[in-house]
């Protein structure tokens, strides 16, 4: 659809975009301020708050933990999610319908409830180490992205190509790796990105699963904010925003950004 838009609607949309982007600009501005308190517009310009982050052991450590958890969790979720997505599409008729509902449960159940339940059952109940609990919790939290997003690209995959490879004598796993996987590449990349971003930003599940000595970056930021209100937090936020910029650049390079509205 495309019609003329009323100038009032246009003006409204401009205001909305101002509302959406101004807070992010404010964070960048206050990260550069040469004051010990948060302020905007910045008074004097400095990069010392960025240098400060790297001197703070807690931020460095939790950033590494966050990265490890996000990478391992995303990997794990793709490892179990891709086969499930494949089976759901390949054998759609033969598999029960509740199965695909089961795989979206991690989105349906409130995250904070899931975090609490995990704490009770696996961290305390089974006595699993905190780091393992975090990885497992994140992997499950992002499983729906793996199954749904990969599933969406499998839905448009022509399985007769696979049949052809198989009937010519190609073994199943090799067929999947060399015939199916290259065709659903976009879906796998998209699932990876969505899952990674969700994991690295997660608060509600992680807040229950961080223990003595092990915490993730968002939880560390929350804890820091309760005690200090200086530009350090703003500069950590800027670094996290740079991660988002990096991710969007990857999306643009591999899939094109219009992909995100599909």
């Amino acid at each position: 659809m495309a019609t003329r838009i009323h100038p009032l609607l246009g003006a409204f949309a401009i205001l909305v975009f101002f509302f959406l982007l101004a807070p992010l600009v404010i964070i960048v501005g206050s990260a550069l301020s040469d004051t010990t308190f948060l302020t905007f517009p910045p008074q004097g310009l400095t990069l010392r708050w960025f240098a400060n982050i790297f001197q703070m052991e807690a931020f460095r450590r939790t950033a590494i933990t966050s990265l490890q958890v996000a990478l391992l969790g995303t990997g794990l979720s793709l490892l179990i999610g891709i086969p499930a997505a494949y089976a759901l599409n390949r054998y759609r008729v033969e598999l029960p319908r509740w199965l695909s509902t089961l795989f979206v449960l991690p989105i349906l159940v409130p995250e904070i409830v899931f975090g609490f339940a995990l704490l009770k059952s696996i961290t305390i109940g089974l006595g699993l180490p905190v780091f393992i609990s975090l990885v497992v919790g994140h992997a499950l939290l992002i499983l729906p992205y793996s199954v749904r997003v990969v599933g969406a690209s499998l839905a448009s995959f022509d399985f007769s190509i696979e049949e052809a490879a198989r009937s010519l004598g190609c073994p199943p796993l090799k067929t999947f790796m060399t015939v199916v996987l290259p065709n659903i590449r976009a879906g796998v990349i998209a699932a990876f990105i969505l899952a990674f971003i969700t994991s690295i930003n997660d608060v509600s599940v992680s807040v229950f699963l961080t223990g003595p000595g092990i915490s993730t970056l968002p939880i560390q930021i929350l804890a820091h904010m309760e005690q200090f209100f200086d530009p350090t937090i703003a500069s950590v936020s800027v670094l996290l925003m740079l991660v988002t910029v990096g991710v969007m650049a990857i999306v643009e390079a591999t899939l094109g950004l219009t992909f995100l509205t599909k």
Partner: peptide, 24 residues
Amino acid sequence: ARWGLTMPATIAVVLLLVIPVMLT
């Protein structure tokens, strides 16, 4: 094949989400 491929994800969701939430 079709059950085997969905099994790891099914077990993960049931064991780590459904049962813990139900127990809670």
